[in-house]
Nucleic acid binder design. Structure first.
Lengths: 212, 212, 212, 212
DNA sequence: ACCCGCGGGACGACCCGTTACT
DNA sequence: AGTAACGGGTCGTCCCGCGGGT
């Protein structure tokens, strides 16, 4: 019934890993510090993880699962696909700001050449989700019919990544919602039929620029 | 006119730094390896640079200057601003693929929290350049008048960064031109008056998708 | 009559210890690996053995007992002492090649300074056995009367050890029988009366150099 | 003229490596301890040696060269080959007792499976030297003509190794000269013509059993 | 009695940026 | 500019025990 002791410490390690990685960096994140902050020794760490890289992959996976689940909850709602797109985006944006695990995951997913096999899965998932929602939005009349959905989906994922990165570099992510809203304002202007543009832009403004 | 010997070795160090950093990473780039490849000893290295971080900044600066100069050459041409936008973008894209220094510079500029003071300058310069060209393009009628130029400029920079990053992660930058073209196709569709859309899209296609 | 469960696992541990120690080395033989191969956890290991050193001693003892028993069987036969000498030697040689436990035992017995108290017992036993058989062989006229038996006995033990070691180093024990035969050819030439020399040399050749 | 600083510390490291390895063991010889005793830091160590294994090989090589040179000096003397055989053997025996480097070298050369490529060279050199001297001794009438020289040479090397090993195990090499003398007494009895046996046995006794 | 999950802590080799001395 | 060394830090591993379970 109760959670196994093992799982608890494993979670602890994962979380402090996220913390340290978010603050420093994958390589600058010392295993000892991670372990220390989790309240265990490195010996204990190596009982749960094969090595540092595996820990990183675990963080990535945990973040991905977490984010995907949050998205899922929104996808389950009975609203237009376009609303879902914006809501997921806004929700993810918030979780970036609030959640260290998410930030760590992104960081790791973004760092190139760091691992034997670079983690492509999360990006693919976001793109896939994007494709799905956009196609639906086309059917619902919220996105123009002559739009290349897959090109857009891939671009949105990449653009989001870039905006998030720049926001982190320039303002430590303080203006992230604003920047993401700007992105959507542009994209909505392009991809929605003119009669819906204003509506969705306003909706985006609400989602991104008003405190919860 | 002959280059000082000092400058030569300094340049050598810079170049092999770029090489190693591009291949590995800032932290994984060992000074000894850099020095070795430049044909000098670490002792010599410390004669030319205060420390590793300064070297990194030097790489960034060198890359920035190089890229800015290439842009300059295009800006000096007597063509519409919109053409310049696309040409600079295409030229930069090519230099990413071909030039290790450029890749290293980007990598360093992109890595967060790595340095005491993160290098914001390059990003600001690209944004500033973007603003300038877009404003001009508005005046020339290639960009719609009701467009928020600064929002677009900033977004384009960020989006470019994101697309470049993703392309690196997914295909080792092999599809970078294609992806950047996709970006432009979307943005052109949104920002140019409808009667110019086709023209600029075709122009972009030429610039990005035809072998030199 | 059924073996206790405890004894079974203990035996398992002993055997995989022998395996790993033979392959690697005392220090390179990780307890976890040994336990793993025995199908138990390290926790279980520590129930049966006090620590790693005790395990090593157990391996030595097991090997010694095993080898001594095989010798015993030959000693019980009704043949000349000289025949016993050669037969025991040949039998031991074969067991070295075939039996991991024997190899591990030898290895541990040979490695110096490894343990708080170096295992001298096996060597003494071999020497004692040697003395006994040689004395008898003298009585039986197979060994010259003016021979210093104890000097020979001690030397044979040591020489055997050395030959075995060198054979291991040079040919991974592939030529062990040949080398041991060479040893006996020399020693027989020296220690047997001239009219028996040929006979025993031929006998040794049979024992060592013909497939079973 | 003066020795380079580098060579001095390198020699220091080598020597303390020999010390620690002789006392402990290859694996139990901690690099820090070696470095400490050489008066340098591990950092300095890694400037001179690639890794621990290379150090071991360096020790082996140094010992081998040292021993070979000592042998050379004896070989240069104008005495019968048989005298050389015994003298080299006695000299080597003494150096084992007195010289830590020699002991460490032997230890490393003896330990099996320790290195990527086991050091076979020293053994081969000893055997080669042995062959050479024995052949000469045959020509000089000190060794019987019908003797298989190469078999003897190889056996002597191995037997010496074994005797040395056992002496180390049983009496910390205190009785090494006595044991080696025993070996020679036996071998001389077998390999020399009967009219020379006494002479060479007495000579061996002098060389091994009288204080210098 | 027999065994396991989990963790501790120390220590291992190795490497890396940096600096005196020459 | 180069040679030699420093010192701190990294990840990883290893042997071992404690508490609990069956």
């Amino acid at each position: 019934m109760a959670q196994m002791r093992s799982e608890v410490t494993q979670q602890n390690i994962l979380l402090s890993a996220a913390k340290v990685i978010d603050e420093r960096n994958y390589e600058r994140a010392a295993l000892v510090e991670i372990a220390e902050q989790a309240g265990v020794t490195t010996g204990a760490f190596y009982f749960h993880f094969k090595n540092k890289e595996e820990l990183a992959h675990a963080v990535i996976e945990a973040q991905n699962e977490y984010s995907q689940q949050r998205a899922e909850r929104i996808l389950a709602m009975d609203v237009p696909a376009m609303e879902k797109i914006l809501a997921v985006s806004a929700d993810f944006t918030r979780s970036i700001i609030e959640n260290q695990l998410v930030r760590a995951g992104i960081r790791l997913t973004t760092e190139v050449n760091m691992f034997s096999e670079p983690p492509q899965l999360p990006w693919n998932q976001w793109t896939a989700l994007s494709v799905e929602l956009w196609t639906q939005a086309v059917r619902e009349g919220d996105i123009k019919e002559d739009i290349d959905v897959s090109a857009h989906a891939e671009f949105v994922t990449a653009a989001y990544a870039g905006v998030q990165l720049l926001s982190g570099l320039m303002t430590a992510r303080k203006d992230l919602p604003q920047r993401i809203f700007n992105m959507w304002a542009i994209l909505i202007g392009e991809a929605t039929p003119s009669e819906r543009t204003e509506h969705w832009t306003n909706r985006a403004r609400e989602l991104f620029l008003t405190a919860q």
